[in-house]
């Protein structure tokens, strides 16, 4: 199954027929493995990687590191849940180091993101001293380099 997952991770649009040919399996078997992975919540979604800047749409991303006083019984989980329900929040991670949670927030303008942090995040009782880092340039995301691709420098015919 892992080989199939890796193929889909590289390109989610690879068809079961293509995967079957690539892995020497039967297309029906591939379909079944994929369905199983979907049912088990291993394959969660099929999404596209989009360079919104190139598409001419401005989106502001900020990384916010916060310290949180953990709660008895549930540790950080309840606070994390309270934060991750906001649609503006793209990701929430519990991290090691001086801060506890790393929150990724997306908004249409810097002002709106800043307001979100000040009004929604910072006001949660257990959240302390959020520090906000606005994303200025995307060099690489989820394994994809956002600059122009390196050209194929090989000669067209090589022995």
């Amino acid at each position: 199954m892992k080989e199939i997952l890796k193929i889909l991770e590289r390109d989610a649009r690879t068809t079961p027929e293509q995967i079957a040919a690539m892995t020497g399996r039967d297309p029906a078997e591939v379909r079944q493995i994929i369905a199983e992975a979907e049912a088990k919540g291993i394959l969660r979604r099929y999404k596209a990687t989009i360079d919104w800047e190139r598409a001419g749409e401005e989106r502001v991303i900020a990384f916010i590191d916060v310290r949180v006083s953990p709660q008895r019984g549930t540790g950080f989980d309840d606070i994390a849940r309270r934060i991750d329900r906001y649609p503006e929040v793209r990701s929430v991670y519990l991290v090691s180091g001086e801060q506890d949670l790393r929150v990724v927030v997306e908004g249409p303008t810097m002002r709106e993101v800043a307001f979100f942090v000040a009004e929604k995040l910072a006001t949660i009782e257990q959240v302390q001293s959020p520090s906000t880092h606005f994303l200025l340039k995307r060099y690489k995301e989820d394994g994809d380099i956002f600059d122009d691709e390196e050209p194929d420098r090989r000669l067209a015919v090589v022995p």
Partner: peptide, 28 residues
Amino acid sequence: PSGIRRFFDLVSTMTDVISLGVGEPDFV
């Protein structure tokens, strides 16, 4: 001369060619 050479010369005059003639990895 290598039989491949002649073919290479032919290919290099063209554009939009998909090459399955390259005997080296496509990875950097």
